[in-house]
Design a protein around this nucleic acid. Structure first.
Length: 265
DNA sequence: ATGCCTGCGGTTCGCAGA
């Protein structure tokens, strides 16, 4: 079972690359982020023609997440639940969760687009990010109680450690790297989730995002912000976690590249 | 210190991204 996550930065602009990459890698499940379109505008038939069932949670202009799956969906849950008064009026499309059955195994997979949070002095930005992470903490805790394989995959907009950024000093106060952000991420991990890349790969300074500007890609000035968080039942099956840099060098790329995990049966 | 790119919406510039 091969599962991928990819922030495509507009599914409409990226469709040729996405199709090319799906045919190349042939993943079983794909979590997409930053669709930048409403549900009706998602190129449904073009993806279905490649053999995928599609669940979409879109939004005009911004955000938007999807899950593509070769297995049919047993369940599709749209949106991150509100908790403790946070997120009651949240209209941003950043979370989509599905359940599929593989043989005897029930697998729950979520596509996550965690808020960026910059600038940190704006409560509507950084406060929203921290609130969203608190909601994710509570929801993950509820899902972990099922004691089933759970895969929370996506663009977390969190640089976990100084080994995941080309120049830690210049990022120290950024919403993606400041201590408060990383602590909120660790709080989620400490529920008992395994960060797949660190668990089975762990190569330092291997990035999943490079800014379009400043020659970041050719200079390899990147950050690792796209992650898989796994329940114990999923982590027991984890074999590989790879970052696929190839599509960053293609024509008209996303600024993120796909990350993949391999799970054994 | 700012913009650099890119995509979108909607009009040729502003916002957001990270």
């Amino acid at each position: 079972m091969k599962i991928a996550t990819w922030n495509v930065n507009s599914i409409k602009a990226r469709l040729p690359l996405v199709k090319k990459w799906l045919e190349l890698q042939d993943p079983d499940i794909v979590c997409l982020q930053e669709l930048k379109c409403v549900n009706e505008a998602f190129p449904l038939s073009e993806i279905e023609d490649l053999g995928y069932n599609v669940a979409v949670h879109g939004q005009k202009t911004y955000n938007g997440v999807a899950v593509l799956s070769k297995l049919p969906f047993d369940e599709v849950n749209v949106g991150l639940p509100a908790s403790e008064g946070r997120g009651e009026d949240d209209e941003q499309a950043r979370y989509l969760e599905v359940v599929v059955t593989q043989g005897e195994t029930v697998l729950r997979v979520a596509s996550i687009y965690l808020p960026n949070g910059n600038p940190v002095d704006d409560p509507k930005k950084y406060g929203y990010k921290l609130d969203w992470m608190e909601r994710l903490y509570h929801h993950a805790r509820e899902l972990l109680a099922y004691e089933e394989p759970l895969v929370l995959a996506g663009d977390y907009n969190i640089i976990p450690t100084e080994n995941d950024v080309w120049n830690p000093e210049s990022w120290s106060e950024d919403a993606l790297f400041r201590p408060q952000s990383r602590a909120a991420f660790r709080k989620i991990l400490n529920l008992g989730l395994t960060e797949a890349y660190s668990a089975v790969n762990g190569q330092s300074h291997n990035y999943s995002f490079w800014d379009y500007t400043k020659g970041a890609w050719p200079k390899d000035h990147g950050i690792r912000i796209d992650h898989f968080l796994l329940s114990a039942q999923a982590a027991d099956r984890l074999v590989t976690c790879e970052i696929d840099r190839l599509p960053r060098g293609w024509e008209r790329p996303s600024d993120h590249v796909p990350v993949l995990i391999g799970l054994k049966a």
